[in-house]
């Protein structure tokens, strides 16, 4: 397929604008984190760093409990992902492969959870968690994150379950497998990309969450990264080098995760959403 030259120029121009919009901020942050302090505050910012130092990272890790926050966030996000998957896969199977009364109405009610201003449940939830001793525990964050990721996670699985030809499931069942074994042995491998997509969505939801963590966690040692880092920002207001190092380190884990299974996420969104 050949394109007119004007069309090519427009296309690559568009690519450049979008790429610039998404990537430029990250470029300045990551390169800024290895610049010497006087270069960071230079009147004319340098696009390519002219100095190199790791002092901001040293200071960040020595002066604050950044590493502890990072570990907390990894624990909470991983556990939230596991819980979301454990709940969303059976629910998705029930919604999209089984017939039962009230299915449509229930499915719509769950989608309504989308419409919650999450801040609405913050106050009553705090009181409730206080009563059952969940305040200041990482388990509280796992429950909250999974609940907020769940409606969209179930929705994402819809198209993946729908794509499986009924004959495959039928044949497996005729061979005498109970439904749960069929689900585990036959269906799960077939919807693996969908599971990957849901896993990333759940992980990102937990990884970026700030509000609930800031209210439900009281002790510094249990703070996840967003809350811990917000504290560091408050404490080191204008120490841009240290803050840029912190931002760079916070970006790293999700970038690694995305490098590994990001393609699944895009496949899951493009195949699963908006049917």
């Amino acid at each position: 397929m050949r394109r007119a030259p004007a069309w090519s120029v427009a296309l690559w121009g568009g690519v450049a604008v979008i790429a610039g919009l998404v990537l430029t901020p990250f470029w300045f942050v990551v390169t800024g984190s290895i610049k010497a302090p006087q270069e960071i505050i230079a009147r004319v910012p340098t696009v390519i760093p002219e100095s190199f130092t790791l002092q901001h990272y040293d200071k960040l890790l020595a002066a604050s409990d950044y590493a502890g926050y990072l570990v907390n966030s990894l624990i909470v996000a991983t556990a939230s992902t596991a819980l979301t998957l454990a709940l969303a896969i059976p629910a998705g199977y029930a919604f999209f492969r089984l017939q039962f009364r009230g299915r449509g109405a229930l499915y719509r009610t769950i989608l309504l959870a989308y419409a919650f201003p999450s801040i609405v449940v913050l106050v009553p939830l705090f009181a409730m968690f206080a009563r059952v001793g969940l305040v200041d525990t990482r388990a509280a964050l796992v429950l909250v994150n999974a609940a907020f990721a769940l409606p969209f996670a179930i929705w994402m699985l819809r198209a993946f379950f729908a794509q499986i030809p009924p004959e495959i499931e039928e044949a497996a069942r005729l061979d005498g497998g109970p439904p749960l074994t069929v689900l585990r042995r036959i269906l799960l491998p077939l919807i693996a990309p969908g599971i990957g997509a849901v896993a990333i969505f759940a992980f990102v939801t937990a990884w970026t969450e700030y509000v609930f963590a800031s209210v439900l966690i009281l002790s510094d040692a249990r703070r996840p990264l967003p809350v811990g880092f917000a504290g560091i920002i408050g404490q080191y207001q204008v120490d841009w080098g240290l803050l840029l190092a912190g931002a760079s380190l916070a970006i790293l884990p999700v970038v690694l995760l995305f490098a590994a299974i990001g393609r699944w996420f895009v496949a899951g969104l493009t195949e699963g959403a908006v049917k």
């Binding site: 979008i18 990250f26 990102v204 912190g246 916070a250 999700v254 970038v255 995305f258």
Partner: peptide, 11 residues
């Protein structure tokens, strides 16, 4: 392209 969405809001 979703890079800006996978980063914590604090960041």
């Amino acid at each position: 392209i979703v890079l800006s969405w996978i980063v914590p809001t604090v960041v």
